[in-house]
Simulated assay, not measured.
Amino acid sequence: MNDLTERLIASQPIVMGGAEPTVEELRKRTGEMGYVLVKFTETRGGTELGFPLDREATDLSQADFDNGTGTVHLEGHLVLNDDRVRCIAEIDLASLTGTGRLALEEKSELAVQ
């Protein structure tokens, strides 16, 4: 396992990624685009990861995008430095911050996708 992957397995602070993160941008990304960016802030310079949402594992039911309140639970698969991982993130809409972590994926889990 890569050193960066190993460090990101522990739950840690994240922010919504992108050039100018807004609630409206997060709504667009979780809706029509189905692809999100999150930034792990405790690595040197920060580590921004983008991934397609796993719609079955993602939960937007606690989010009120119109009022910018509540939270979103985001999950998706990606490959980071040759490691197949799942990114798991909770983001608060009011601050666009939260916590995130990576989970190593088994090859059999990816074959089903």
Rank of each mutant, 00 (worst) to 15 (best):
Met1Cys: 12
Met1Gln: 13
Thr5Ala: 06
Glu6Cys: 09
Glu6Tyr: 09
Arg7Gly: 08
Leu8Glu: 03
Ala10Ile: 12
Ser11Gly: 08
Ser11Arg: 14
Pro13Glu: 01
Val15Ile: 13
Gly17Ser: 06
Gly18Glu: 05
Gly18Asp: 08
Gly18Val: 08
Ala19Ser: 15
Glu20Pro: 01
Pro21Thr: 12
Pro21Tyr: 05
Val23Gly: 01
Val23Tyr: 04
Glu25Cys: 13
Leu26Cys: 05
Leu26Trp: 05
Arg29Cys: 06
Gly31Leu: 03
Gly31Asn: 04
Glu32Ile: 12
Met33Asn: 15
Met33Glu: 15
Tyr35Met: 14
Val36Arg: 00
Phe40Ala: 05
Phe40Asn: 04
Thr43Cys: 06
Thr43His: 03
Arg44Pro: 11
Thr47Leu: 07
Thr47Trp: 01
Leu49Val: 09
Phe51Glu: 01
Asp54His: 03
Asp54Ser: 02
Arg55Lys: 15
Glu56Trp: 09
Ala57Met: 11
Thr58Lys: 04
Leu60Gln: 02
Ser61Trp: 01
Gln62Asn: 14
Gln62His: 12
Ala63Lys: 00
Asp64Leu: 02
Phe65Ala: 08
Asp66Leu: 08
Asn67Lys: 12
Gly68Tyr: 00
Thr71Ala: 10
His73Gly: 06
His73Lys: 09
Gly76Pro: 07
His77Gln: 11
Leu80His: 03
Arg84Lys: 13
Arg84Gln: 10
Arg84His: 13
Ile88Val: 07
Ile91Cys: 00
Thr97Leu: 00
Arg101Glu: 12
Arg101Ser: 14
Ala103Pro: 07
Leu104Tyr: 09
Ser108Lys: 12
Ser108Ile: 10
Glu109Pro: 04
Ala111Gln: 13
Ala111Tyr: 11
Gln113Trp: 11
Gln113Phe: 11
